[in-house]
Design a protein around this nucleic acid. Structure first.
Length: 598
RNA sequence: GGGGUCGUAGUUCAGCCCGGUUAGAACGCCGGCCUGUCACGUCGGAAGUCGUGGGUUCAAAUCCCAUCGGCCCCGCCA
């Protein structure tokens, strides 16, 4: 049972200093401290307690002869008890200084102490540097997990990044405006989270996947520079870097050009890195076309921390007698290769696994050849490939002696992303990445792509993205060739943000929707409010949105979004602490005219 | 929906392949001793539905099947 030394809800005294802030210069001061017991060392006589707050820990000394009452309190204290103490900061004698601690030159000789709150033994250690508890447990007791120095630092750093963002955008004349969380379901994109309307039985709000249309409407209204740290919701399966609710830095501006927006975004990112990490970025960031990114890296968010680019080897294998390759080329498919340096050796078993994974995960064939020291080839296809082809392919792919060449044949759209994935996996395996920050812009995305599943065009970005002015004539004739005025900011293989110039002409917007399969009536039913708004002097505009959580991940160096969010959900979209989502009372359902048919 | 991996004291793990004493260790916890430690030390102690259910077997933490949960990935996610 907890033991209380006071029944008063009011503390006996307030804090004068943070524990972690005390230094040699404070020696001699009388201080009042609050904090958690990080460690207690009972020598029978003297008791030492490390008292922790978010700024760090300081050593308290309890002397049974000088202050028996305070010492008695220290005897009762246990890990994570919350204490209030009064005492004097004293310089430690030379032989007792702790060089490991920022506060290690001093300690606080305690004269008065009270237990403000006792604590059950924590289910896992909260001491910095202690062995990590399982994430399951950490999420169940998230409030304790967040007490740990690492999580404190992550969330505080995230806050600093947002300060940098706000400072920059404010300086550029942007106005922060909130938009509704209860809004309208959208037909394109991710699954919506729905909220039933009690007042309108049978009807539902949707939580916004992003404030996209709302911010465009604000442009029509004349808030010519808008931003918001907006919560967004998407009901899709989770990943290490995907949560069902997440935050975006949402930006929109009137009179936007691609150059204008990317410059604002670069400045904003520089400000965030400066505030959060003291890192000075040097814009402008390089930009490459989507088509080039796919060709060289098999990804629209290339990781430039290492080279090892994909190579088109179709020409090298032209006229090959190897049937698989010859058939592919005959169909108009391509052959791409990825050359591993000689220093990166894969065992036969590892190669077989890669081939098998490619088969099960992507239903694609993968093959390989190993170069010997004298340039010969070994592997399953080696005997099918002639001398001159080997030489041409090796030269084109940059295959070194002792190197390994991974090969795929098929439609470029399919095999390049597959090889791009392998490129990343191999970089991870062989630790090929440098530790610099490689920012870049990927531009000239296609406006549409063909969805085989839906048998229609779908937007690569979203239906409100403006086509490239040079490609307007192609819109109806060859829509797949139309480039979009869209841009993604990429950092080390992660998409940090993306945006576009928007359509501000209602007729062009209707045409774009028509190409996506929304006839005029349907378009008006779904997006009538936008089309109407565009009829009232909508200025040209565009914008961008950044993932706050991913930005925080980069700044904190974490592998998971969950480590930079206070209360994240598990892969099954559950909060182990509260138990959400949960069943609700029958009465609540009745009020909402909802029947559960499980 | 699919693939992989993990699940054993409060915690982190070992044991599992090759079934067989009383399921171990460390940390934590509880108690004793200890006046300069700082992950204090030291002596002693308590602590486990081996995720759950079923099967095989004389015998299951261990083998098989199913199921639940955590994590990673594919699909999905403008």
């Amino acid at each position: 049972m907890p033991e209380y030394s006071t029944t008063s809800p009011l503390p006996p005294w307030l804090r004068s200093d943070y524990n972690g802030a005390l230094r040699a210069a404070d020696a001699g001061r009388a201080v009042a401290l609050w904090g958690w017991v990080a460690s207690r060392r009972d020598h029978g006589g003297l008791i030492f307690i490390d008292l922790r707050d978010y700024q760090g820990i300081v050593q308290l000394v309890f002397n049974p002869e000088r202050d028996p009452a305070a010492h008695a309190v220290a005897e009762k204290a246990r890990a994570e008890y919350y204490l209030a103490v009064k005492g004097t900061v004293v310089r430690r004698s030379e032989n007792t200084i702790n060089r490991e601690l920022p506060t290690g030159e001093v300690e606080v000789v305690v004269t008065e102490a009270q237990i403000l709150a006792s604590s059950a033994p924590p289910p896992f250690p909260l001491v910095a540097g202690s062995e990590a508890a399982s994430e399951e447990l950490r999420l169940r007791y998230r409030y304790l997990d967040l007490r740990r120095a690492e999580m404190q630092s992550n969330l505080r750093r995230r806050h600093q990044a947002l300060r940098g963002v706000r400072a920059w955008l404010d300086g550029q004349g942007f106005v922060e405006i909130e938009t509704p969380i209860l809004w309208k379901a959208t037909p394109e994109g991710a699954r919506d989270y729905l909220v039933p309307s009690r007042v309108n039985p049978g009807k539902f709000y949707a939580l916004p996947q992003s404030p996209q249309l709302l911010k465009q409407l604000l442009m029509v209204s004349g808030f010519d520079r808008y931003y918001q740290i907006a919560r967004c919701f998407r009901d899709e399966d989770l990943r290490a870097n995907r949560q069902p609710e997440f935050s975006q830095i949402d930006i929109e501006m009137t009179g936007a050009t691609v150059a204008g927006i990317t410059a604002i975004a670069e400045g904003m990112m520089a400000s965030a890195f400066e505030y959060a990490a003291g890192i000075k970025l040097v814009p402008p960031f390089p930009r490459i076309a989507y088509s080039e990114a796919m060709e060289r890296f098999g990804s629209d968010k290339p990781d430039l921390r290492f080279a090892m680019e994909l190579k088109n080897l179709s020409a090298a294998f032209a006229g090959t007698s190897f049937k698989v390759f010859a058939d592919a080329l005959g169909r108009g498919d391509a052959i791409y290769g990825l050359a591993l340096p000689g220093a990166c050796q894969l065992s036969r078993r590892e190669l077989d696994e890669m081939v098998a994974n490619m088969h099960t995960q992507r239903e694609r064939g993968l093959t390989w050849a190993k170069a010997t020291a004298d340039g010969n080839w070994q592997g399953p296809i080696a005997r099918h490939i002639g001398e001159t082809e080997r030489a041409r392919a090796a030269a084109a792919a940059g295959l070194e002696p002792n190197g390994t060449l991974l090969l795929m044949a098929g439609a470029a759209d399919e095999i390049r992303p597959a090889l791009g994935d392998l490129r990343l996996q191999l970089a991870e395996k062989f630790d090929l990445r440098d530790d610099a920050l490689h920012f870049l812009w990927v531009v000239d995305f296609p406006l549409f792509e063909y969805s085989a599943e839906e048998r229609r065009l779908v937007s690569v970005n979203h239906p409100f993205t403006a086509p490239h002015p040079d490609d307007l004539a192609l819109l109806e004739r060859e829509p797949l060739k139309v480039r979009a005025l869209a841009y993604d900011m990429v950092l080390n293989g992660q998409e940090m943000g993306g945006g576009s110039i928007r359509i501000h002409d209602p007729e062009l917007q209707l045409l774009a929707l028509k190409l996506l399969g929304f006839e005029r009536d349907e378009a008006m039913r779904r997006f009538g409010f936008l089309i109407e708004a565009l009829n009232y002097g909508a200025p040209p505009h565009g914008g961008i949105a950044f993932g706050v959580d991913r930005l925080a991940m980069m700044l904190c160096g974490t592998e998971s979004l969950r480590d930079v969010m206070a209360f994240p959900k598990t892969q099954k979209a559950v909060d182990p602490m509260s138990g959400a989502p949960s069943e609700v009372d029958a009465r609540q359902l009745r009020e909402l005219s909802i029947k559960v048919t499980l």
